[in-house]
Every structure is written in structure tokens, then in C-alpha cells.
């Protein structure tokens, strides 16, 4: 049913405003099934705003206005879907690890429980599967009832990925997921992303150009709210079309 390479998400003429600030300007960008799209760009370039538009987290900000359309599998997420439905299908992992103040198991079970799964066996199965996919199972399997707040930063971030997987999304958004992590934890998170490629479409916003090069198959470069270019990672990092892209990835600014 799912054809890798076909378009999963299509954003067209997307404009986002926070009050008087025009943070995203006429962005048209599509994301393909089961790819990892890296989004790079300096601070305030609109990367996170774009990401939050994809699962309607921007709705939480009363000053935020939007024009243009975002379609997932052809359906307009703002006009044809509920915010809860879209967030279940397009889940998000934040920059800072945000475990909820409960046990490791309850963190994973939180989403499925709210979506109506009450069977303990089923929840345990989901928890194990999610934790394995996020490369965390072996480290926490003996203390699932322990507090999630006592895990290390890297473990917490992988817990958040596992919690996201537990609601069985189709798309996973990562908002600079490794910005607070050490290189080894970063490597583990990236490893998890590779493993998840077979089942999920993933979008990674990162400040780290090298990470985008390591993980992304396609890369989009945002600058000052504009999408400068989006292309295969190889092309972006070897022969970008735009001078600004070249300047950014070679470290001349940003």
C-alpha cells in the first residue's frame, strides 16, 4: 500500500506569522514516504515553525496565523482533520527530552492508554516493542517501574522517541533532538532513526550540518523564513544550486 518515494506530506505556499513577524515565507516542500528529510538552517530561519505546522502544534500559540495548505496523503490537515488525529499520525520529538513525571512504563503507555488501549498485556507488548525500536530496552528493562526523570539525558530522549513510537504514528518529527546530548547518545539516537526508516517517514530539524549529512537522504535549507533549496543530500553537500547554501554548509556563516 505504501510506495516508498511517493509524496507523503505536501506543503504548498505555506506562510506563518507570529503576530507581526513573518516567520515562514511561501514555502512549498514535499516529504516522501519513508525518507529521512533533514532540515538545516541558522537560528530563526523558520525550521521549527515549519515542523510545528506539520502536526498543528502551532495552534497552541494564539498569536500564530497561517496561510497555504499542508496535505498528508492528500488530505488537508487544517481543513479536513482534527488536531488530535493529525498529531497521532504525525508525532513530534522535542529538542529537550520531556519525560512525563511518571514511571518509564507509564510514559510509554501514556499515549496508547489515552487512545483507548487498557489491556495490560497489550500495553506491555507495545512498551517492549517501542523501547526496542528506540534502542533503550536493554538499558531499562529491569526498571520499567522506576521514575523516568532519573534516566540520563540521552536515555530520556530515546524514551521520548519510544513514547512517540507507542502511539503508532506514520511520520516522526524531530526538533533538534540531539542538541543537548553528548556524541555517544547522539550516535544512538541516529542509529534509532536509521532503524525506523523502514516503517516511518522522518523529518529531522537540526542545527548540526554534519548530522544532516549523516542521517538525511534529502536535505532542505531554510534561511530567514525562506526555503532556499531542497534536494538529495549528496547534491546539497557537493554541488548546491544556491550560493547561500554553499556558504552555510561550508561554514561561512550560521
Amino acid at each position: 500500500m505504501v510506495n516508498p518515494g511517493t509524496e507523503k506530506i505536501v506543503a504548498e505556499d505555506l506562510n506563518i506569522y507570529y503576530g507581526p513577524l513573518h516567520v515562514l515565507k511561501n514555502v512549498t516542500l514535499s516529504v516522501r514516504n519513508h525518507e529521512i528529510l533533514g532540515i538545516i538552517g541558522p537560528a530563526n530561519s523558520g525550521k521549527t515553525s515549519f515542523l510545528k505546522a506539520l502536526n498543528r502544534l502551532n495552534d497552541l500559540n494564539p498569536n500564530c496565523r497561517m496561510s497555504g495548505s499542508i496535505r498528508i496523503d492528500g488530505k488537508d490537515i487544517n481543513r479536513e482533520m482534527d488536531a488530535e488525529d493529525i498529531r497521532k499520525r504525525v508525532a513530534m520529538v522535542f529538542a529537550l527530552p520531556l519525560p512525563l513525571p511518571m514511571s518509564i512504563f507509564d510514559n510509554i503507555a501514556y499515549g496508547p492508554r489515552r487512545h483507548g488501549i487498557k489491556n495490560r498485556k497489550e500495553l506491555e507488548r507495545i512498551a517492549e516493542k517501542s523501547l526496542r525500536s528506540a534502542f533503550l530496552w536493554d538499558e531499562v528493562k529491569d526498571r520499567l517501574t522506576g521514575s523516568a526523570m532519573k534516566l540520563s539525558g540521552g536515555q530520556q530522549q530515546r524514551l521520548c522517541i519510544a513514547r512517540t513510537l507507542a502511539v503508532d504514528p506514520e511520520v516522526i518529527l524531530y526538533d533538534e533532538p540531539c542538541s543537548g546530548l553528548d556524541p555517544i547518545s547522539t550516535a544512538k539516537v541516529e542509529e534509532a532513526m536509521f532503524e525506523l526508516k523502514a516503517r516511518y517517514t522522518q523529518i529531522l530539524v537540526t542545527n548540526n550540518v554534519k548530522q544532516a549529512a549523516r542521517v538525511g537522504e534529502r536535505v532542505a535549507f531554510f534561511l530567514m523564513g525562506e526555503l532556499v533549496e531542497a534536494d538529495d543530500a549528496k547534491k546539497i553537500f557537493t554541488a548546491p544550486n544556491d550560493k547561500r547554501t554553499e556558504d552555510y554548509i561550508t561554514g561561512r556563516f550560521g
Binding site: L57, R87, K88, R89, L98, G111, T164, V167
Partner: peptide, 21 residues
């Protein structure tokens, strides 16, 4: 606020977020 966002980002409704978190 981050607890609320973490919960909402999982597709959990606002009322459930208030009740459970």
C-alpha cells in the same frame, strides 16, 4: 508548559491532558 506539549504532541486531547497530566 512542556508537560502539556509533550502530551498534546502524542495526539492526546486537551481535556485528557488536563485530566491526566
Amino acid at each position: 508548559q512542556s508537560f502539556r506539549e509533550a502530551s498534546l504532541a502524542l495526539g492526546v486531547s486537551k481535556w485528557q491532558t488536563i485530566r491526566c497530566i
